[in-house]
């Protein structure tokens, strides 16, 4: 019986990629959300004075 091959490096790389991808996705949603909220505030402030 051969010894178990050492593939720890690959394993670490795999988990890093998985967490990084999910992290980037969450971050991108957060950034998009923040930008949209900023736009929304600006648009609402532009919208109101015109109506008066």
């Amino acid at each position: 019986m051969e010894s178990i091959p050492d593939t720890t490096g690959y394993m670490i790389a795999g988990f890093v990629v998985a967490f990084a991808t999910m992290g980037i996705h969450v971050l991108s949603m957060y950034v998009r959300n923040r930008n949209l909220r900023r736009d929304l505030e600006m648009l609402e402030s532009m919208d109101k004075p015109e109506k008066k």
Binding site: I4, P5, D6, T7, T8, M11, G14, F15, A18
Partner: peptide, 12 residues
């Protein structure tokens, strides 16, 4: 036993 540690990515 055959693949070693890298098999652990299988679950994800």
């Amino acid at each position: 036993a055959v693949m070693g540690q890298v098999q652990r990515v299988f679950y994800f």
